[in-house]
Design a protein around this nucleic acid. Structure first.
Lengths: 99, 99
DNA sequence: TATGGTTGCTACTGAATTCGTAGCATAGAC
DNA sequence: GTCTATGCTACGAATTCAGTAGCAACCATA
């Protein structure tokens, strides 16, 4: 085996998206940037320390960046939400099936 | 507003997928069913109590079910992984961009 | 019958994470 | 100066997770 763990890129992404609040934050930013406090409120008032941690994580992952109007998705972040769009339709069918 | 919170189905799904280990478990079951212990090992040896909780959660969500050979994805679970496939390509571009 | 292996799962302790709230420092607007 | 909004830190309490031990049921084989 080589020195680098050769972990599939998808596995890393799954870990990232599987971290609590990460998907939610991306989702809340999908349309427009939000201030720290607005984002906090959108996420149901999660604690600022956790939000801060997640924002740092998302910044180093190049999915979120600081903008004039607060925090917003990078182009890459936008493209991820684009790829995730089919998920919305799937979610509706799924919810109906749970009745 | 109506009596039910009318929370978008996608929001519920995001909450579910944002729960620790949930995406990972679905990912590990993507190709074939695994026994409880094999699944535990595939997830890097997470504690059986957490795995048990997540499996119960995924069962009530109709994404995972018990099969002869252990735990496997339901048809619905399979279809979710199908929808998520474009994520794999996106992940590769993303990882390259992080260098 | 009994011996051994696998499996699904519970129990328990300590470590890590998150929640919930208070509050500070900075930066405009008035 | 005062007021408001903003980004963020601090800290104790509550929750969750990690890590390990072990049990009961189910085979298979002898």
């Amino acid at each position: 085996m080589s020195e680098s763990a050769k972990r599939p890129a998808l596995a890393d992404l799954i870990d990232l998206l599987g971290t609590k609040w990460v998907m939610r934050i991306l989702w809340e930013l999908r349309e427009n940037a939000l201030t720290f406090r607005a984002l906090q409120a959108a996420c149901g008032g999660l604690s600022p320390s956790v939000l801060n941690h997640r924002l740092k994580l998302l910044e180093t992952s190049r999915l979120v960046e600081r903008q004039q109007s607060g925090y917003g998705l990078t182009d890459q972040g936008q493209s991820l939400m684009e790829v995730q769009k089919p998920l919305a339709q799937w979610a509706q069918r799924w919810q109906r099936s749970l009745t």
